[in-house]
Design a protein around this nucleic acid. Structure first.
Length: 417
RNA sequence: GUGGGCGUAGCUCAGCUGGUAGAGCACUCGGUUGUGGUCCGAGAUGUCGCGGGUUCGAGCCCCGUCGUUCACCCCA
C-alpha cells in the first residue's frame, strides 16, 4: 500500500534550489536601498486580528470582501493571514508607541502575504513583498525619497522595461468635491447592475475597468486631479519637482486606482510590460487617516510594497538576473573510513577560516565522488587517504583546468587563493 | 466566482484512423590498482492524474472529478 503524495496548497509559489538563489538575490537587491536610507527591520506576525484589515484596508475593497484567509482560532478569535503589510506595521507602531519619539519612524519589512485569489501568472495565494513605511511626517520630499528608494530597488535588478506612474488622490476636501461630480456623471451613464454596485462602493474603481465601452465613457469622466485643494496641488507639484531633480522618471496617470482604501495624496505604481496580465511590480502611497482609524495619533505616513515574485519574473524576462551559482571553494573526499574523521575535522577548521567546504558523503566509488565534486562546481578538490594522513601532504587539484599541486595539509587555506 | 488550454518515466516531450508505451536529457554501474568534464557499453524507472462509461480491446473516444496553467475580476 503506497502512501499518497501530499502536494503544496493551491496557488503557492515555492523557491527551491537552484532557482531560490535568484529569489534571494532579488529580495536583497530590492530592500538594500531602504537600509541605506536608514530604515530598520520590523518582523511582524503573518496573522493578525481580522478587524485590523477590516478597518485598516477597508470593507469596500476586494481584498477584504473576498480575498482574505480568515479563520477562527481555538479561543474563538477571528484571525486573518495578512493580505498586505501596511496595516500590521501601523498596528505595531501604535501598540508599542514607536511614534512617540523622533519622526518619521522609518521601517522595512519582508515576508509572505496571502490572498485567496484564483492563481495566475505572477499572482499567487502566498506571495512575497518587501516594503517600507515612513510615518509621522507629511513632507513632499519624503514622498519623493520613498518613491526613489523603490525605483532604486528595481534599478538594482537591472530592470529597464518598467515605468513609474504617479498621481495624487488629494485630501478629504479634494475627494469630497470630486466625488459629487463623479457620482453625478456616473448616474448619467447606463451601466449594468454589477458595475453600478461597484461605483456605489467606490466610484473611482470604474476608472480601472478594462472593458472597452466602460473605458470609453470613463475617458470623459471628471478627474480627481482637477479637484485638488491648493494644499494637495502644491504638495503634488513639489513631489514632482523633487522626483525630477532626483532623475526618477515618471508619468502622471490621473486614472490610477489602487485596491486599498487607505491611500490619500501621493499614490504610485510601478508597471512592468513583460509579465502578462499581472503587470504591477510595486506600488504605494501616502495614507493620512490610517493611523487614526486604527486608534493611533492622527499622523500621516507613506510607504510602498514591492512584489518579490513579480520582480523576479521581470528580471528573468529582461535576462538581468546575474549567474548565481553556488561554488564551494573546496571539495573534500575521504578515500576510506580511516580518513573520514580527518576530512570532517579539516572541513570544520577551514570553515571557521571562512572557506566554503563541501564533503563527499556516502559509499561512493572514488570516480563517483570526484564526479560529485565536479557537479558541485567547487573550485578545488582534495582526496585524502592513508598516504596523505601519513605524509601530511595533499594533492590540491584545480577543477577548471585539472592541474594539481602538492601542499601541506596545514597550509591548504593559503593555497586556495 | 466565470471561461479556455493542458495532465504519458526525475525533467522536456513523442505516441498515426482506438490493438495492453517510447525518445532525449538526467540517474546508477562498468571501460585494469587512488581523481571529474568528452566518448563507448550496460542498467533501473511508469497503476499513461483519478473514477466511471462505450468497445472484443482505451494513453487515444464520452462523462465526471482532481490538479495545473492562462485569462476575466482584482492586485504585488
Amino acid at each position: 500500500m503506497k502512501n499518497e503524495k501530499i502536494q503544496a496548497p493551491k496557488g503557492v509559489r515555492e523557491y527551491l534550489p537552484p532557482e531560490s538563489r535568484g529569489f534571494e538575490w532579488v529580495r536583497n537587491q530590492l530592500i538594500a536601498p531602504a537600509k541605506l536610507a536608514g530604515s530598520q527591520l520590523m518582523e511582524l506576525p503573518v496573522f493578525e486580528d481580522t478587524s485590523l484589515f477590516n478597518r485598516g484596508v477597508g470593507e469596500s475593497t476586494d481584498v477584504v470582501s473576498k480575498e482574505m484567509y480568515t479563520f477562527e482560532d481555538r479561543g474563538g478569535r477571528s484571525i486573518t493571514l495578512r493580505p498586505e503589510g501596511t496595516a500590521g506595521v501601523m498596528r505595531a507602531v501604535i501598540e508599542s508607541n514607536l511614534d512617540r519619539g523622533q519622526l518619521p519612524v522609518k521601517v522595512w519589512y519582508s515576508g509572505q502575504f496571502f490572498r485567496a485569489e484564483r492563481p495566475q501568472a505572477g499572482r499567487y495565494r502566498q506571495f512575497y513583498q518587501v516594503g517600507i513605511e515612513a510615518i509621522g511626517v507629511d513632507d513632499p520630499a519624503l514622498d519623493a525619497e520613498v518613491i526613489a528608494i523603490a525605483d532604486r530597488g528595481f534599478k538594482n535588478l537591472g530592470l529597464k522595461n518598467y515605468r513609474l506612474e504617479i498621481t495624487s488622490l488629494g485630501d478629504n476636501e479634494s475627494r469630497a468635491a470630486h466625488r459629487v461630480d463623479l457620482l453625478n456623471y456616473i448616474k448619467s451613464l447606463s451601466l449594468d447592475e454589477a458595475t453600478t454596485a461597484r461605483a456605489a462602493l467606490n466610484p473611482l474603481r470604474l476608472f480601472d475597468d478594462k472593458r472597452a465601452e466602460v473605458v470609453e465613457v470613463m475617458s470623459k469622466a471628471p478627474l480627481l486631479l482637477d479637484y485638488l485643494s491648493d494644499y494637495s496641488r502644491n504638495h503634488f507639484a513639489k513631489v514632482q519637482e523633487y522626483l525630477n531633480a532626483l532623475g526618477v522618471a515618471f508619468v502622471i496617470n490621473p486614472r490610477m486606482v489602487r485596491g486599498l482604501d487607505y491611500y490619500t495624496g501621493t499614490t504610485f505604481e510601478f508597471i512592468h510590460d513583460g509579465l502578462g496580465a499581472q503587470s504591477g511590480i510595486g506600488g504605494g502611497g501616502r495614507y493620512d487617516g490610517l493611523m487614526e482609524t486604527l486608534g493611533g495619533q492622527p499622523l500621516s505616513g507613506i510607504g510602498f510594497g514591492l512584489g518579490v515574485d513579480r520582480a523576479l519574473l521581470a528580471a528573468i524576462a529582461e535576462a538581468s538576473l546575474p549567474e548565481q551559482s553556488f561554488n564551494a571553494d573546496l571539495f573534500l573526499i575521504a578515500l576510506d573510513e580511516s580518513a573520514k574523521i580527518s576530512v570532517l575535522k579539516l572541513a570544520a577548521d577551514l570553515r571557521i577560516e571562512g572557506v566554503t567546504v563541501e564533503v563527499s558523503f556516502g559509499d561512493k566509488s572514488l570516480k563517483g565522488a570526484v564526479k560529485g565534486a565536479d557537479k558541485s562546481g567547487a573550485q578545488y578538490l582534495v582526496v585524502i587517504g592513508s598516504a596523505e594522513l601519513e605524509s601530511g601532504l595533499v594533492t590540491l587539484k584545480r577543477m577548471n583546468d585539472g592541474t594539481s599541486i602538492s601542499v601541506k595539509m596545514s597550509e591548504l587555506k593559503g593555497a586556495l587563493a
